[in-house]
Amino acid sequence: MLLIALPIMAYFHLFAGQIEIGMSEFYDAIFNFDPVNPKTNHLLAREFRIPRMTMAIIAGAALSIAGLLMQTLFNNPLAGPYVLGINSGASLFVAFSFMTGIPLLTSDLGTVSSALIGAFLFGVLIMSFSYKVKSHISLLLIGLMLGSFTSAVVYILQSVSSAEELKAFTMWAMGSLQHTQLSELPFILLLFIAGIIGSLFIVKPLNVLVIGERDAKLLGTNIRVVRLIIISLTALLTGLITAYCGPIAFVGLAIPNLVKIVFKTQKHGTLLLASALTGGIFLLLCDLIIQLLEQHINIPINAFTSLIGAPFVVFIVLRRLA
């Protein structure tokens, strides 16, 4: 079902937007593209619609997988890259890289590397906290505190940095699915696919981790290695998306929970693929609605996912307390 829904949604997404672009124009944009003097609609299809659609799918899928990984690692259905501050880590390091003004660091590659490193370090940090706290909610509080703390540091960085750097960072932090270019897609796809394949390789330990670290260990799982792999994959997926699309909230938390409720399983092979597909569909749908509303109201993607995601998280909490 999801396998059918994704292409349908992607199709509608491609043709949404205020400027009408026909099927044949898409065909020509892909196969008969004139790079020297392209027609405007070909250019729009190639440089705007296709990257935007691809990024919506990749971002939705990557964040959902990252969320699932964290939920299983921490044995906490309320975990996710955003609420646990992995995004914040990426943001903080991107802020550092922007504010230094060193061209190497402010290049795209510099931004991506900074985001990955930041995400990884904050992943390790939250993991070390997770040993100290027993309650699911406490860990979330720590994640939120990490978020507040980094916002404060970023705020201070902003106040001492020059206007131009400040602008560039502010724009980045607003987040967008539209800033990616066609030429960047292969690199992003490569890392994304590496992340997915990596996750599929740890399906076995993930399945066992569900019953807790002790039992997983007694069943022969090398917990230390698995933890490190999970944190690395989460950092890769979250950092990648954060670097290119800015922080996108709640997708990683909400989608895996939705998938578990629908599929009623803890088999991670199924959960991973279903989360990826559902995440992709979800973000496509969000972005589609944003485009339909564009003429009346402008909603940034991050605000829109929060609008839907936050109530859903409250629903999950209430459901568990009931």
């Binding site: 569900v210 019953i211 807790g212 578990k260 599929f263 399983t265 803890q266 088999k267």
Partner: peptide, 10 residues
Amino acid sequence: PSIDFMRVFD
């Protein structure tokens, strides 16, 4: 362990 959606067989 308290887990949602885990079948006995699994």
